[in-house]
Simulated assay, not measured.
Amino acid sequence: MAESADAPPGGRAWSRPALVVLGTAGVLLVAATGLFLGAVFLHVAPANTLSREYRDEVDGLVYPEFEQNWKLFAPNPLQQNVALDARVRTVEPGGATRTHDWIGLTARDVAAIRGNPAPSHADQNLLRRAWDFYEGSHSAQDDSLTNPRGKLAETYLKRIALQRIGRTVEGDRILEIEFRVTAATVPPPEWSGEAAPPAPKVRELPWWPVDDEDHRGLG
Rank of each mutant, 00 (worst) to 15 (best):
A5M: 10
S15Y: 04
T24K: 02
L29A: 12
L37D: 07
G38S: 02
A39W: 05
V40A: 10
P46C: 10
P46Q: 09
S51M: 03
Y54P: 00
D56F: 14
V58A: 07
V58R: 08
P64I: 03
W70F: 15
K71R: 14
L72Y: 14
F73Y: 10
P75C: 04
N81R: 14
N81F: 10
L84I: 15
R89K: 15
T90S: 15
V91K: 15
V91N: 09
V91E: 15
E92V: 06
R98Q: 13
H100M: 00
L105M: 10
A107T: 09
D109F: 04
A111R: 15
G115A: 06
N116P: 02
P117S: 07
P117Y: 09
A118R: 12
Q124S: 05
N125M: 13
L127C: 04
W131G: 01
D132C: 04
Y134P: 01
E135M: 05
S144T: 09
T146L: 11
P148T: 02
G150F: 06
T155L: 14
T155I: 09
Y156Q: 09
Q163I: 00
Q163H: 07
T168Y: 13
T168P: 03
V169L: 08
E170D: 15
G171P: 06
D172K: 14
R173Y: 10
I177K: 07
R180K: 11
R180H: 03
R180C: 06
V181E: 08
T182C: 04
T182I: 13
T185G: 03
W191Q: 11
P198W: 08
E204G: 11
P206E: 09
P206W: 08
V210G: 07
V210H: 02
V210D: 05
D212F: 09
D214S: 03
D214F: 01
L218K: 07
